[in-house]
Design a protein around this nucleic acid. Sequence first.
RNA 1: GUGAGUGUAGCUCAACUGGUUAGAGCAGCGGACUGUGGAUCCGCAGGUUGGGGGUUCGAGACCCCUCACUCACCCCA
Length: 423
Amino acid sequence: MSEDKPEKQPVSAIKGTHDILPKEARDWQRVEAVAKATFELYGYREIRTPVFEATELFEKSTGQTTDIVQKEMYTFTDKGGRSITLRPEYTPSVARAIIEHRLDLLPEPMRYYFIGPMFRFDKPQKGRFRQFHQVDIEVFGENDPAIDAEIIEMANHLLKKLKVTETAVLVNSVGCRNCRPAYLKDLRAAAAAVEASLCPDCQRKAETNPLRIFDCKIEACREIARGFPEITTYLDADCAEHFRKFRSYLDLYGIPHRIEPRLVRGIDYYTKTTFEITTAKLGAQNSILGGGRYDDMMKDFGGPDISATGFAMGVERLLSVAELEPASDDFIYLAYMGNEAKKEALLLARFLRSHGVECLLEFKERGLKSQLGRASKLGASWALIIGEEEVGKGRYQLKNMKEGTQIEAGKQDLLEILGRSDH
RNA sequence: GUGAGUGUAGCUCAACUGGUUAGAGCAGCGGACUGUGGAUCCGCAGGUUGGGGGUUCGAGACCCCUCACUCACCCCA
């Protein structure tokens, strides 16, 4: 309302968020469509939950000690004084919905998928954003390690459809509440014993998160870490058997995989199976998909004691490595000259659209030449020329923009030629 | 939160050791061709060089501050 000159750039998108422009949105739509079709093929059904939840939900499930909860959540107090958090991940919401609606009592298999935005207050970098999107799938009530293998096979199937190559499947077992504590204790002790010979980074990790030493990029640290105890030797009978079978099913599918003792997934609720699929083409944030089993979450919530497993896939990361065929537009550009022709064009466009033909007409004062130039530039398959003469006889000049050929066609001819008369 | 790098037109980039009016290609619009696109040629429009301060006769360039973006640590999708 002021008399001042308008700001050059009044506002811009919040740090770590991005507009998805029409050209990119095409690719998003296709990835989403392929993902949905794939999951439906495996018997999964979509479930949608709100973008925000009670803060407590994430504190209880994701874990008080995790980075996600400690420093990455968008948490605020609403006008009713409640603490609200924009979801940083999807799994807790699904678990909550199942308990709330007693979905576990329904006959349908509890296999769900979801696509939508997540929010984490991270410092943005390549492949990492504050608002990002995940494709998420979860299975509840299946204890068999075969399902852990099947969801990886399903992920592989999807990646293959999207022509994502150079991927690696990393797997691990983090044990359970019986066997993990002893392992962590011994690992910490082992790291403390050699602390002096580790790099400064790893010296810190020895205190905070010794599992991460396995992941150091400095060869000396990696060498030392090879001597550390591995979780796999600490697994109790049940977990060890689960892990063994899980891998044998992956072998059955012929899916190569590597055991990665570092794979803990930074989230408290995982039990037994954890896995990741990485790609060499992504930079430091090279994980396009990660997940695992979380058998304790439901009962910890005060819900039924049912097991669960699933994964989340980063859509931005997926898009940056997927090889999608360039989208081809197929529409007809209506070029008109004069007011009578304009009216004719409006009605013709309505007619064609009602038969499923995509039409574009623009309302600027342009000559025929300029309009055809537009049609060409915008990638129209056809141009329809409507002038006084054409209005008079009810037949129009239909030009094939690729071939450069042109014929005269009436209303009905158009439908047949454009090949959409069955719509 | 820590560290490094980069900011010039819508996009990609020029502008010598500081020198006069900051240029080009692409994209946009118009014309050559007033009813026939893509090629070519010509023209038009587009900038407070991210912002602020300083040094200097003179700053896009050098110094300081700030903001933004990028990459990395951490963590994760």
